[in-house]
């Protein structure tokens, strides 16, 4: 599959990075305003899905190999759990906001939400990778194939 027309490809080239940037903004700003890990992660995944649609599966896999995506998927969840466990070791309770004591409520400081921005980043990685994988795998299964190998060439994405 070679992807879609040159118009779509060009527009995608311009917009994909912007969408990604916007997703990153939503994640990073999530502890202060609307947004957060899940919403931002979905926007990040949309950037990858746009690339997959416009350029085809092969190109998308060059940008983000499947093995990397599924590793990052587990990594995001583990990072979130690790944050909680560190709180347990440091503060005595699961999910203790162990950074909050230092910088709580200080304006213009990165960690003024305690561990919440970090948790948002972990969730964003997890959500982005999961959504991308769900979309990619579902869109690339051959419907009449005997073997269950994933082969994106035979499936047209329109």
């Amino acid at each position: 599959m070679t992807g879609m027309t040159v118009i779509v490809k060009t527009v995608t080239r311009w917009t994909a990075a912007l969408i990604f940037l916007y997703g990153a903004y939503v994640v990073a700003y999530g502890h202060l305003g609307p947004g957060g890990g899940f919403a931002g992660g979905v926007i990040l995944a949309c950037a990858y899905i746009l690339i997959t649609l416009a350029y085809g599966g092969e190109h998308a896999l060059r940008v983000l190999p499947r093995a990397v995506a599924s590793r990052l998927d587990s990594f995001g969840a583990l990072a979130f759990l690790a944050l909680a466990l560190v709180g347990m070791v440091g503060g005595g309770l699961f999910f203790t906001n162990w950074l909050q004591q230092k910088w709580a409520g200080k304006a213009f400081h990165v960690f003024n939400g305690g561990i919440i921005p970090l948790a948002n980043v972990a969730i964003a990685i997890k959500v982005c990778m999961s959504l991308f994988l769900v979309f990619f795998i579902l869109s690339s299964v051959r419907m009449f194939g005997k073997d269950e190998q994933i082969d994106f060439r035979s499936k047209e994405v329109d």
Binding site: S70, S74, A77, L78, L81, A84, L85, M88, F94
Partner: peptide
């Protein structure tokens, strides 16, 4: 909380 954290963590490490 380890009763939830252990299986949850293993659930993501094992894959």
């Amino acid at each position: 909380p380890l009763a939830i954290a252990i299986p949850l963590g293993m659930g993501f490490i094992l894959p």
